[in-house]
Design a protein around this nucleic acid. Structure first.
Lengths: 195, 195
DNA sequence: GATCTATTACCGAACGTTCGGTATTCAAGA
DNA sequence: TCTTGAATACCGAACGTTCGGTAATAGATC
């Protein structure tokens, strides 16, 4: 071919994701993105002809895929539901850097009444997360509508934990959210009598 | 004495708060803030000589005080704990516009490793919220450390509900969080045998 | 009661800076 | 050599901010 890239696509998207996570879309300037990636602004435009918006879109898609590989896939693995929930919690802990990293979905969400550029991607990612949680809850014996509620509750708790951990400068809420994941999705006390 | 203000301080801070809530600090441009307030950029600088940063600081303090009056004060009112929790939930629903408005604390939080301009105010506001919840839980019969955990859980659930409601374009998570407030802080099943 | 003065709120226009984005040149491999 | 990725230099636009001046009110003076 020709001159090789000085940073691989995956590594580049991870570096960029950190900036978007920490500063949000508006707060992530090209100067920040360039510094974090080790490339210059013009080089970023070579990789992402669509500019900053394309960067955020690809970062969002890549992060969603990484979350799948790191945590959600473990929910459908082998073993008892509570063990799977525990393994997924470890993956989530790694993905969110022990609660230190804000959720990209939160940082890229547009105001409710408006339609930002990422609404569809963000909604799809949230939906996939909730659905994965709900599937485990149903497998653990919950009725379909109850499983959905439990999946939503787990996602809410997780993201609330991230918000509080960041705002309060304490990882306690995040730790609490992780340990609650198992109880919410696959409680020790069976959810149904016959399941 | 002199010319009266064309918009009162409280009303002005509320208008500005909506912009900061919807767009965050970086995303809230002076053009947005001026349009939302009905004042020109220069007039905003007359009211807030410290500029955009002072606007956000005063907005944060004012919003915290309004949340106190609208919801937290109801937690220490009269009546049974579960009734107080229900009334506070109504106040929270009004404050967050039925889950449509993002939390200012979330939008103004700085990355964990950095120290943004609002870290102290944000942390104090979160702490006050959790403490108010914990006080009610303790009054409802929870042991001190359990009450603190319940207060944190309630705050996490609430903010997670706001995040998911915004990202998923559905008010269901927020509604779920509000109805869970009562169960978390003042459950129907007593927390202690003798309380 | 009309006029003047002091004081405050507001606004139009511009400031320097930084923004996202682009054109061009340079250099590294195949 | 020829292709391609990165760097330098640059652009118009928008950013937050500042400043000079105008509009509007209350009290003082006549």
């Amino acid at each position: 071919m020709a001159r090789p890239q000085s940073i691989e696509d995956d590594a580049l998207l991870i570096r960029l994701a950190e900036v978007f996570c920490d500063r949000g879309f508006e707060g992530a300037s090209l100067a920040h993105l360039a510094a974090a990636s080790g490339l210059r602004k013009a080089s970023l435009y070579h990789r992402f002809p669509g500019g900053k918006r394309q960067m955020a879109e690809e970062v969002l898609a890549n992060a969603s895929a990484r979350l799948d590989d790191l945590a959600l896939v473990l929910l459908q693995g082998e073993g008892a539901p509570d063990e799977r929930a525990a393994r997924a919690a470890e993956g989530l802990d790694a993905f969110y850097a022990g609660g230190a990293r804000a959720c990209l979905l939160n940082m890229l969400s547009a105001p409710r009444e408006e339609d930002g550029p990422f609404v569809d991607g963000v909604r799809a990612a949230f939906e996939k997360l909730v659905a994965a949680f709900a599937a485990l809850a149903e497998e653990a014996g919950a009725a379909p509508e109850d499983a959905r509620a439990r999946g939503e509750r787990a996602a809410m708790f997780l993201h609330g934990g991230l918000v509080l951990s960041r705002g309060m400068r304490s990882e306690a809420p995040w730790r609490r959210a992780l340990t609650s994941l198992r109880d919410e999705l696959a409680p020790a006390v069976p959810l149904a009598v016959s399941a």
